[in-house]
């Protein structure tokens, strides 16, 4: 029992910290989540993490739900609920507080410098997310083609990404890839 309590605390701690590190949104913290879950805690394999990310993309909703799935994989339903709450609540409390004093400093020059300064860091982190997923997912040329085609569709068209995800899963089912 102690072990499972330890794991739950560890989830709360990890995701609570990630919540406050997620400058630029959930996509920026995927590499750190992966590092913790796969490399530091050995909660799951690289392939499992990549599959969980893919599943989280195949469900509707905000894009932080990979944390729900990681929590679930590690400690079942309690893990899922705690990881989700830990991912949302710290930043929500911060948002609630900041919203109340926002009028006072929205035009402050330092706020614009902070926003402009954080943006390139976020871009680098999201690029790292992409790199991590590509390395794990593209085991052969046909999978790499799926990645490239999906990227092109999502970048150049307004098509619902679900179509690309569905087509790719179907290609897998039919053993085309």
């Amino acid at each position: 029992m102690k072990d499972s309590t330890d794991v739950l605390w560890s989830l709360v701690w990890q995701f609570g910290a990630l919540s406050l590190l997620a400058f630029g949104g959930a996509n920026a913290i995927i590499p750190e989540m992966h590092r913790q879950a796969v490399e530091v805690h050995h909660w799951m394999s690289d392939a499992d993490f990549t599959a969980l990310f893919a599943i989280s993309q195949a469900a509707p909703g905000p894009n932080f739900m990979i944390s729900t799935l990681v929590g679930w994989k590690v400690a079942g339903l309690p893990g899922a609920l705690l990881a989700t709450a830990a991912m949302c609540l710290p930043s929500c409390l911060l948002a609630y507080g900041v919203a109340r004093v926002w009028d006072r400093f929205r035009d402050a020059p330092w706020r614009r410098a902070v926003a402009a300064g954080l943006a390139p860091v976020t871009v680098g982190l999201v690029a790292a997310t992409f790199w991590l997923l590509v390395r794990a997912a593209d085991q052969d040329a046909r999978l790499a083609i799926i990645t490239a085609a999906t990227a092109a569709i999502a970048y150049f068209t307004k098509l619902n990404p679900l179509w690309a995800l569905g087509a790719a899963a179907a290609a897998g089912l039919l053993d085309i890839v």
Partner: peptide, 12 residues
Amino acid sequence: GLSAAAAGLAAA
């Protein structure tokens, strides 16, 4: 297949 497509979404 799904994972490869999800990586593509991240690229975009």
